[in-house]
């Protein structure tokens, strides 16, 4: 095993990794439940993915292939920084291909290419508590989860429809996991929510600053909160990707000049590049 001399494999000491693995096992056993854990200071700031990094560090091994994305892209600065960190401290192979990766650490997106069994998706979570805007006291939210007392969250969605005619959460839209726990999907766009439902891959969520880990085991029900007569709507820009032509992917809006010129391109850079390559090969 390789790594950095003077530091443990994957940075964390073995005792810390054991603690994290115990936490992860508990999280997998109780889908959607936030398990407190003794998050460590990492050499990256809190709020920059320390939870995701600790989860990845606890599960990664020399045979893994790691992909890191931020905003769907492998090339954004924080993704580059985290990928480089693991190359350095764990000596693992990295990839930008969703299909080649065994572990994908992500901030704010789920890849467009469906994940398969055996893959693990690690989410970076800034605020694990889905109720925090309605009830900031942790002691109280813990009680609400224990009693599955989620009427208040539904009231918020009701108020959205009253005011805006539609549910107005564009991202971080709360989900019910396995019919029991209300969970924050992390700030992914609502477009990505349906991908969580019965996903064949294991989904792990790490919140370093808030010191919580939670999980969705493979093939678990994940249902976005909504009303029967106002069903949940995944939102995307109503365009096709200017680069690969995809009409089913989540798009970034890119301003091309200062007079209103704009194009829409895939947020998932691997998905887009793969489609472009396939098109060129076909031509």
């Amino acid at each position: 095993m390789s790594g950095v001399p003077g530091f443990s494999y994957a940075y964390l000491d073995e005792g810390t990794k054991r603690m994290l693995r115990r936490t992860l096992l508990k999280a997998v056993a109780i889908p959607g439940y936030q398990v407190p854990f003794g998050a460590r200071e990492m050499p990256l700031p809190y709020g920059w993915g320390t939870g995701g990094i600790q989860v990845t560090a606890a599960i990664i091994g020399p045979s893994d292939v790691l992909k890191v994305i931020d905003q769907g892209s492998d090339d954004t600065t924080n993704a580059v920084s985290i990928r480089r960190f693991f190359r350095r401290v764990a000596g693992v192979a990295t990839t930008e291909r969703t299909t080649e990766a065994t572990i994908i650490q992500t901030r704010h997106r789920i890849p467009e290419t469906p994940l398969r069994e055996g893959q693990i998706l690690v989410y970076q979570v800034p605020m694990p508590e889905p109720l925090f805007r309605l009830e900031p006291r942790l002691a109280e939210t813990r009680r609400l989860h224990a009693l599955a007392d989620y009427g208040l969250m539904q009231v918020r969605l009701y108020e959205d429809i009253v005011r805006h005619g539609a549910i107005a959460t564009a991202y971080n839209h709360p989900v019910m996991v396995d019919g029991r726990y209300l969970m924050s999907p992390s700030p992914i766009p609502a477009f990505d929510n349906p991908k969580m439902h019965r996903m064949p891959a294991l989904q792990l969520f790490g919140a370093g600053r808030e010191k919580r880990i939670y999980a969705v085991p493979p093939y678990t029900d994940v249902v976005s909160l909504d009303f029967e007569d106002h069903p949940f709507r995944p939102i995307r820009a109503p365009h096709a990707c200017a680069l690969c032509g995809a009409a089913d992917s989540y798009l970034d809006e890119v301003l091309t000049d200062d007079s209103g010129g704009r194009i829409f391109v895939c947020s998932d850079t691997d998905y887009c590049a793969t489609r472009q390559a396939a098109r060129q090969a076909a031509e």
């Binding site: 009427g151 009701y158 429809i161 909504d226 009303f227 007569d229």
Partner: peptide
Amino acid sequence: SVSAGGNVGERLMAAGVRHYG
């Protein structure tokens, strides 16, 4: 901070009613 209708509806929603209309 919740509308009058939302106030009245809260207990229904807590009881599992999921039909806005």
